[in-house]
């Protein structure tokens, strides 16, 4: 009991991290695409829980709202609409993409090793308090994220929104290609 209360944060972190990784593995290991999607949903929710552990409540809420509530719904919508069949065993997991998988694994290992080495020399980046600091004073995570996004990183933030706009316009053009071009002038028939 004493051990539990003393190491509560560590125990929670490693439990949640293990569950996140396990459900992420499930995404690629399940044969049925809908089961994969459910696994991905679980992974998103566990990541949100990890955000809460780091006192980033705003990020946790946005993680659930955007990824779980928005993107996953669209994923499922597409999976059901195009009715993806169960995959054959040889098509799942490392099906003929072993070199790519090995390369990705080595890179990830290097990243973890680098993080570990850098961490052993001293703290990396600002501590968790930075997630709550506004103008040198302690405030909520929401205010801290707002200050970072709209002051320090305003230009990158706006550039990213332009990139998203380009992607959206591209999707619309692809979607309308058949309807417009043959009828001349690119105008849609009503």
């Amino acid at each position: 009991m004493e051990f539990l209360t003393a190491h509560f944060v560590e125990i929670m972190f490693y439990t949640l991290a293990a569950l996140t990784v396990a459900s992420a593995v499930g995404v690629v290991a399940f044969r049925n695409p809908v089961h994969s999607a459910i696994s991905l949903l679980a992974s998103f929710l566990f990541v949100a829980a990890l955000f809460v552990m780091r006192h980033a409540e705003f990020l946790a809420a946005v993680q659930v709202l955007v990824y779980a509530g928005g993107i996953m719904v669209l994923f499922l919508f597409v999976i059901m609409l195009v009715n993806v069949k169960r995959l054959d065993p040889e098509q799942v997991f490392l099906s003929g993409k072993a070199p790519a998988a090995v390369a990705a694994g080595v890179l990830l290992g290097a990243l973890i090793a680098f993080g570990y080495l850098a961490g052993s020399l001293g703290p990396v980046g600002p501590g968790p308090e930075a997630l709550r600091m506004v103008d040198g004073a302690v405030a909520g995570n929401t205010e801290a994220v707002g200050w970072l996004l709209y002051r320090q990183y305003l230009v990158p933030f706006e550039v990213v929104s332009v990139v998203l706009l380009v992607a959206m316009i591209g999707a619309i053009i692809f979607g309308r290609r058949d309807a417009g071009l043959e009828e001349g002038g690119g105008r849609m028939e009503q």
Partner: peptide, 11 residues
């Protein structure tokens, strides 16, 4: 929290 949690209900 309310918006996020209730958006999971659609699943």
């Amino acid at each position: 929290f309310v918006l996020g949690v209730s958006s999971v209900g659609v699943f």
